[in-house]
Each structure stands twice: as structure tokens, then as C-alpha cells.
Design a protein around this nucleic acid. Structure first.
Lengths: 323, 323
DNA sequence: TATATTTAGGTACCTAGTTACGTAAACAGG
DNA sequence: CCTGTTTACGTAACTAGGTACCTAAATATA
């Protein structure tokens, strides 16, 4: 089978195949023991036989299915006369499900089958060098600690990090500056008049007024931008603004690199404090600002409608966040 | 989760849950890499990107799916313009499927993603005491050697074997003798007149003519029977006939115990050869007779219509099959 | 060479799960 | 106490696979 060459890349496919196989095997084992139980009923049956009566959603949580799935299974088992249900007298929404007399009878008769299956599996595990059962439990535990997408992203970051550079703005990047900002603005909000002015004329609105723009390059393409705008008549020296990272490279730490670089730039310019405005729907951005050392403040009114949170950073070189 | 108390009994459920989780994770990884590939397309895509063009059924075999599944996946990928198909000029039935230009392009761009996923998985495996990937491969290999139902049956056999006894027939078992034989006869054939006579009157047709019947008891219930009928004007001394085992206890070695006991009985009676008639559709029975030492012969005509195979066993005490 | 069998692969429908959504009961806040 | 929100859970529709069955082409056989 060519697919096997894919190795762990095909882990999902392999697991699916194996679980299907085991379901078939389970069906034939039930048949051999004359147990009138479908494999898909087993989780519900098992939980009910050990723990009496419970509502559908609790059952669903206890077996790790969605509640409609349990609802369907219960309906099928009702037809097979294995369970009975009645509504909870204390809570009319609840449908309490429990084993019927026939179900209890089956739960007693099935113990021999459990014993044999358990023994067969345990002796199978004993004959292997790598214990699947323990491996599965451990693997699920590891995924709980950090999900697979997170782990993969971490690998990508490590691999691609050297290909990311942060450089000062030159007019060549004007269209990128606009593109990378209008992308997120128009996704979550609507472009305001001031946006168009600043993004169309960064030189006159930012650079010429003593501000700075940094551009992040990935494989020599501009994928992130960030501006430092001097503030007048404010307790803060500069505003960190117009930060945007292309969606396809998010998660690679480009925002962090831009932020760190712009803070260094501010320090080099002698700034003692930075200010920024954002919106709480931009959760990853807020998290980044916090990680960069910004703290929430209550400042004055903003020229942008979308602003609903203001943050500030005091630049004392000794307590800068670690790289 | 209460279901976790079931331990390995819930192996199937656990595998299903994990494979569903990985499929979701895969989808989000594809999204992060802007790869326009559904997780379910991966097996087909992977095989095609490595091995050019191939017909649908070959693809199905290479990824371990049914051909309708591949047919559907190919249709979806066709809409996404990832594959192209054309019928084989040498064989009009075949639908040759290969990657399109866009598909080939994707197969080049996806290699970074493969690298990261592979690295993430391998480093995850390295951090565990029990390697899931190796465990899965080994587990599947073990199941190929002997299926789970077979292993469970073996456990059941070992557990229940002490509860099986073979005893000589007494008239109390007349109805069991009839029930256990008519069960298999009417399942595969139809009851003939001679069947009714022998099964209704075993004393006069078998015992009184010098024959013998043995009964297998399981938990004190009659679950198997077997008769030894003296043959006249034949080169064989006795016929082994009317062997029947209740379907719910098949696989526990009851047929073997009955067969061994009846052979011992024949030896004790001084027989030097046994004969039997059967039908090749009764595969487990034929296999049992062979295991007991019977060999196929070409004898004369049979009184039973259902007979299409005849077997014989020469009883030389020295070369009896081992217990 | 005609006919029977096998093979490739499409369509229809089944299965075991899901998400989305609606309704009614319970609960919480003014 | 009323009203808005949450919760329980049923129904509907979707998804990713499967089996059953059909047709047409290729192959084997009489």
C-alpha cells in the first residue's frame, strides 16, 4: 500500500482504518456471544450499567459524544427494550435514561464476554513491544497539553524564523503598507476617512512628522508592517499604530518581531512611553501587546470609532521584556 | 468520563474519538498553511503525487478505501481542479486519475507542511514513553496474524472448557438429540424421511443395533451430540453420524471433544475404521473431520440426498492424532 | 465465434457520527 | 414578577465512510 510510505503523516487515516476494523470485530464478538448489542450502543450501555439513571446530556459528556448522537442511540436501544426513560420530576427538560429489566439482565450476562475481551486484549498487549493502550492514553494526554496544530506551528516558526527580517520603510512598500492594514481593518471594521489618508500618504502623515514605519519581509515579500507616530500634547511620546501581519503568515512570531523592533526604535529615539489603541475583538493583537509589555489604561477620546481599548508601555530600558 | 473506566474494552471508541480529533486538527493545519486540501483528500493526493496516474480501483487499494469512496473524492478534487481524469486507451473501463497542473503545483508547495507535521509528530513521539506510531503498526500486525474475535474466542474456550463434559446418551436427551441435529439440517438442507425416523427413535435405530450416542454438556445443558452407527456389509466398521453442536457454543471445541470421544469409543469397541458422509458447504465440520484424522474417499451411494463427500478414518492406535 | 465470467467503476442508499437550529423549562437580574 | 439568558434535548440536514447493485468492457471458455 503506497499510502504506508507517508508514515506518521497518515496517522489519522491509519487510526480511522483501525477503529473501523475494531468496530467490525466488536460486532462479530457480540454475535458469537449472542449479545443483542450493537457496537455503537456499548458506551451508553456501559455507562448506564455502572451508574444507574442519568439525563441525555450527562450521558453524552460521559461517553464523549454529542448529545444528538446519544439521543439517537437511546431511541434505538428503546426499540430493543434495553433502556427506559422518564422525565425528571424536578426538571421537566431532563430525560432520565436507565437500563430496563432486560438491559439489567444483559448487563449481568455480559460480564463473561467482558472478561474474555479484556483478557484477549491484555495478552495481546503483553505480546507487543509497544503497548497501544498505554501509547494512546499518553498520546491523548500530550495532545491535551499542546494541540497538534500548535506543535506544527512551532516547528514552522522555528524553520521559517531565519527567513523573516524587519527593515525600515521605503516608499517602495507604500502599497504593501496599505494592503496589510486595510486587510484587517475591513475584515473586522470598516475603513474610516483617516485610515485612507494615513494609508495612502504614509510619508506625509507619519515619516515627515518624525514618525517611523518598519516592514517585515518573509522570503523577501512584505508580510507585516508597523508604525510609530509621534504624539503631541499627550503624556505619551509615541503611538504604536497601523500594525498589520498577512493572514497566511500569522503565528510565525512576525508581530512579535515587529513589536520588539518598533520598541527598540522608540528607545533609540529617546522615548520614555508608548501608547496604542485597539479593539478587544482583535484578541491575538491584544495578547501580543500584553506580551510586549503594554498595560491597559483609560485615556481620552480616540479619532477612530473602532477603538475600545487603550494601552501604554513605559520604556525603562532595565525592565524591558526578555527577547 | 465514566467510559474511561471501561479501559481497553472501549478501545474502539477511544480510537474513533482520537481519529476524529486528528482529522479536525489536520483541517486546521491545512488552513494555517493555506493548503486548499480537505483532510479526506490527503490519501488520494499523496498517492497521486508520488506515483503518477492510476485507475480508481488501484487508488482505492493503495489507500485502503472502497472504490466508491475514491470515486467520490476524485469527483470533489476534480471540482477543485486538483486532478484530471481520462479513460485508458487500452482498456475502456478504466478511469485514469492523475494530478492536474494545479495539483502538481500544490504537491510542490506542500512539502514544507509535510516537513513540519512530520517533525512535530516525531518529536511528540520522542517525548512519550510509549510510541503510538510503532504501537499502532505492531498492533495491526498482530491482528493480521490472528484477529481479535479469534483471540477472544480462544480466551472463552480456555475459560469454559472445564464446564464441558461428554457423557453417554440416556433417553432423557432424546429431544436434545433431535433438536441439535434438526437445527443444522434444516438450516442448510431439508429434513429427509430417514432423518425423522432416526432422530425420533434413536434407541431403536442406533442403540439397539449396537450403536452409541454421546452427549456434550455445557453448564449441565445438552449442547452437542454425536452418533456411532455400526455398518453392515461395508469395508468400514462404524459410521460417525448425526453430529450437531448448538450455534451459540460453536468455536469452544465441543465438536472436537465429541469427535475424540466417539473415536475412543469406537476403538474400545474394537473398530478398525470409521466412515462418514457430509456436505462440503459445512466447511467447519469438514475441517473438524480432517483435524480428527478423516480423509476424503470415494465410496458408494448414500441414503441421504445432502451427502456430497465421504470420509474415512483408519483406527491404528499408534498413529492417532494427538489430544 | 458466441457466450459466460470477471473486472472497472458509477449510482443509490445505508450508517455512525456531526453541527445547526428550534422549543420549552429553569434560572437570574432588574 | 416579568423578562432575558441559559440549559436540555429533539429534529433536520450534513459528512465521511461503507455495501449493494448495475452497466459496460475485457477476458476466458465452450
Amino acid at each position: 500500500m503506497i499510502l504506508d510510505e507517508a508514515g506518521p503523516l497518515a496517522l489519522g487515516s491509519r487510526l480511522r482504518r483501525l477503529s473501523e476494523r475494531l468496530t467490525e470485530d466488536a460486532a462479530s464478538i457480540y454475535k458469537a456471544y449472542q449479545t443483542e448489542l450493537k457496537p455503537k450502543w456499548f458506551p451508553v450501555f456501559y455507562v448506564l450499567s455502572g451508574h444507574g439513571t442519568m439525563p441525555v446530556t450527562t450521558l453524552a459528556a460521559e461517553i464523549g459524544h454529542s448529545h444528538p448522537s446519544v439521543s439517537k442511540i437511546v431511541r434505538e436501544m428503546l426499540v430493543a427494550d434495553l433502556v427506559k426513560q422518564h422525565s425528571d420530576p424536578h426538571d421537566g427538560r431532563r430525560n432520565l435514561v436507565g437500563l430496563s429489566a432486560k438491559g439489567i439482565d444483559l448487563s449481568l450476562k455480559i460480564s463473561d464476554q467482558y472478561t474474555d475481551v479484556q483478557e484477549a486484549l491484555l495478552s495481546l498487549f503483553d505480546q507487543t513491544r509497544h503497548n497501544v493502550w498505554k501509547a494512546l492514553i499518553e498520546f491523548e494526554y500530550m495532545l491535551e497539553q499542546q494541540s497538534l496544530p500548535e506543535r506544527v506551528l512551532a516547528c514552522r516558526k522555528r524553520r521559517e524564523s531565519p527567513q523573516v527580517r524587519v527593515i525600515p520603510y521605503i516608499p517602495e512598500y507604500r502599497s504593501d503598507f496599505k494592503r496589510l492594514n486595510s486587510q484587517w481593518i475591513s475584515t473586522y471594521f470598516i475603513m474610516e476617512a483617516l485610515d485612507h489618508q494615513v494609508l495612502d500618504h504614509p510619508e506625509s502623515y507619519i515619516i515627515d512628522r518624525g514618525g517611523h514605519i518598519l516592514v517585515a519581509l518573509y522570503k523577501e515579500q512584505a508580510v507585516g508592517v508597523c508604525a510609530l507616530i509621534p504624539l503631541e500634547s499627550s503624556e505619551y511620546d509615541f503611538e504604536l499604530a497601523k500594525m498589520g501581519v498577512a493572514p497566511e503568515v500569522r503565528g510565525l512570531g512576525i508581530g512579535w518581531k515587529l513589536g520588539r523592533a518598533i520598541i527598540e526604535k522608540a528607545k533609540a529615539l529617546g522615548a520614555r512611553s508608548l501608547y496604542l489603541e485597539s479593539n478587544t475583538v482583535l484578541e491575538p493583537a491584544i495578547a501580543l501587546y500584553r506580551k510586549l509589555g503594554f498595560k491597559k489604561i483609560n485615556g481620552g477620546p480616540s479619532p477612530y470609532k473602532r477603538s475600545n481599548i487603550q494601552m501604554a508601555l513605559t520604556l525603562v530600558s532595565s525592565d524591558a521584556p526578555p527577547e
